[in-house]
């Protein structure tokens, strides 16, 4: 048998990545959730049924590019959209204080000049929300600008990693045996394109959200006897202000 040429495998992987890039924007436009159910018509009737059920409560969806950054990008897009749409001064002040607090922490942990571009990318958005120069359309453009969008994702990753490192007793349960929390963060959270899982969602939500501003994840998987499952972060009693759709390996944003 001919040995498989590793260069060829890599080329194919590159082509798949390039195809995703050329076909999917970083953040798509709002569309009907029912469109997604139709994609499962032939392949997975259970998923199709569950998405139809979910679309009764959440008729609209905004898709994230499937590049391993979808949770982090979706979280920040939905959070900023909430701040724009709610036009609530108290919420904005709350988040401005939160991000100022974390800026100091991140600069101390990673170095000031290293964190500058990532923290700035967040502060710039908050400032333009405050000055009311950022509307939904401009937010969408901003999140489709490669450098800005990826800087926000990188920020989300550093914040998640820092929060987990500072709350090791809570998170050590999730870390695989034989790995330190610090190694886990360096390998699973900080590199771009590493997918987020439960500990990352819990960490980022605990760092930024509270009882009055929560995140709900509507989860669809292949389990029997369940329609869709609603998970609320940072804890079950929080009042969700934005919603994400979870399908195995991917997150999008949901709207009522």
């Amino acid at each position: 048998m001919e040995p498989v040429n590793p260069m060829l495998i890599f080329k194919q992987m590159d082509e798949i990545k390039d195809e995703i890039k050329s076909k999917q924007p970083l953040v798509g436009s709002i569309e009907n959730l029912i469109n997604i159910s139709q994609e499962y018509k032939e392949t997975n009737p259970i998923f199709e049924k569950r998405i139809i059920e979910l679309s009764k409560e959440f008729p609209k969806v905004q898709r994230m590019r499937a590049d391993g950054n979808c949770f982090y990008r979706g979280f920040f897009y939905a959070l900023f959209l909430f701040l724009i749409q709610s036009n609530d001064k108290d919420s904005l002040t709350y988040f401005q204080k939160k991000f100022a607090f974390f800026r100091t922490k991140l600069e101390k942990r990673y170095g000031e000049f290293i964190m500058e571009m990532f923290c700035d990318s967040i502060d710039d958005v908050l400032l333009s929300i405050e000055q009311k120069t950022l509307d939904e359309e401009k937010l969408l453009d901003l999140f489709n600008e490669q450098m800005t969008s990826e800087s926000i994702v990188a920020y989300a990753r550093f914040l998640t990693s820092t929060y987990i490192s500072e709350n090791q007793s809570t998170f050590s349960f999730y870390v695989p045996m034989g790995m330190t929390v610090s190694e886990y963060c360096k390998q699973n959270i900080e590199p771009m394109e590493q997918e987020a899982d439960h500990p990352e969602i819990f960490s980022l939500s605990s760092a930024l959200l509270d009882e009055s501003t929560g995140l709900a994840i509507q989860k669809i998987d292949g389990k029997v006897n369940e329609n869709y499952q609603t998970l609320i972060f940072p804890n079950q009693d929080s009042n969700p202000k934005f919603n994400l759709l979870y399908r195995p390996g991917h997150y999008d944003i949901l709207f009522k």
Binding site: Y110, G111, I114, M115, F118, A154, R157, F158, K186, Q187, E190, P191, M192
Partner: peptide
């Protein structure tokens, strides 16, 4: 490569 993070220099 895959373990690069933007905090590295």
């Amino acid at each position: 490569d895959e373990s690069w993070t933007p905090a590295l220099t």
